[in-house]
Amino acid sequence: MSFDERGGAPVLRPSDTTEGRSPASRNGRRDPSTVERSGRGRRRLTGSTVLLGAVVPALLLTIWLVASEATQIPDYLLPSPAQVVGAGVELANQGLLGTYILISLQRVLTGFAIGAAIGLVLGAVVGLSDVGSKLLSPILGAIRAVPSLAWVPLLTIYLGIYEVPKITLIAIGAAFPVFTTVAGALRHVDPQLVEAGRAFGLGRLPLLTTVQLPAVVPAVVSGLRLALAQAWLFLVAAELIASSMGLGFLLVDSQNNGRTDRLFLAILLLGVLGKATDALVGVGERALLKRWS
């Protein structure tokens, strides 16, 4: 199985960084339209949606079950689902599972909140002011191009090995999707609406609050969703290096101890937690879009 080859940190690095950047650059442009469509209610959560969405996971689980039980692949390469659940129970009994999940969640949410706020401010400056755009766009583009892991050594030296460097790294990761979508959206607010606002006597600030900001709400929301996904990616980057707790630490620790069952567990938890937080934002998104589009 591929786990042996991919398990090592040196191999993980490049794959982590490409994944870390590509969603922002790809989806940053594509997402607003998707959001608009969902805003008109074409993407509804119905019973059949949930059922259909569960088909492929169920299929994968079955394949996993069969592959682990009916083949000769040794457990240290492919643990069975039961063994992975057992690993989870074992960690929970030691009181570690809850702690790891909570500390990771806390890091993601704190970093996300800080990063999103910074991204909003930078996006507003670059999107609304021509001078701001000329001044900041090149440097921000360059900073954004730096792979997440490249920050880690420097952050460790400057900020130590505790929470601050990790949250800083996650904030860096979360800031850019918000910055990119907000700046782009503000720059492309329908000029006809802006002119109409001007014709009806709106000055610079009222124009911003009456026309420009409401117009970019869908983009802001999709930017926040991307930022949250990015925050999870950067969390693992942060925790892979210097940590003693968290899901990223669980990955490194399990790799060092050859605990493939725990590796599976950590990966599954990251997937489930990422999807769950995204779904929560999605609920807020639907409410916002109903109001603002």
């Binding site: 006809q192 109409a196 001007r198 014709a199 006597g201 009456t210 117009a215 709400v217 109001r291 603002w292």
Partner: peptide, 30 residues
């Protein structure tokens, strides 16, 4: 943008997130 004038454009140019009444409100004098 002389405020003694008012313009109705070729396109309606309504704010999509505001109701009809709130869109008309936009035209009231400051």
């Amino acid at each position: 943008a002389d405020q003694r004038c008012a313009v109705a454009f070729q396109e309606p140019r309504l704010l999509p997130w505001r109701t009809v009444a709130r869109n008309i409100e936009l035209g009231l004098p400051r």
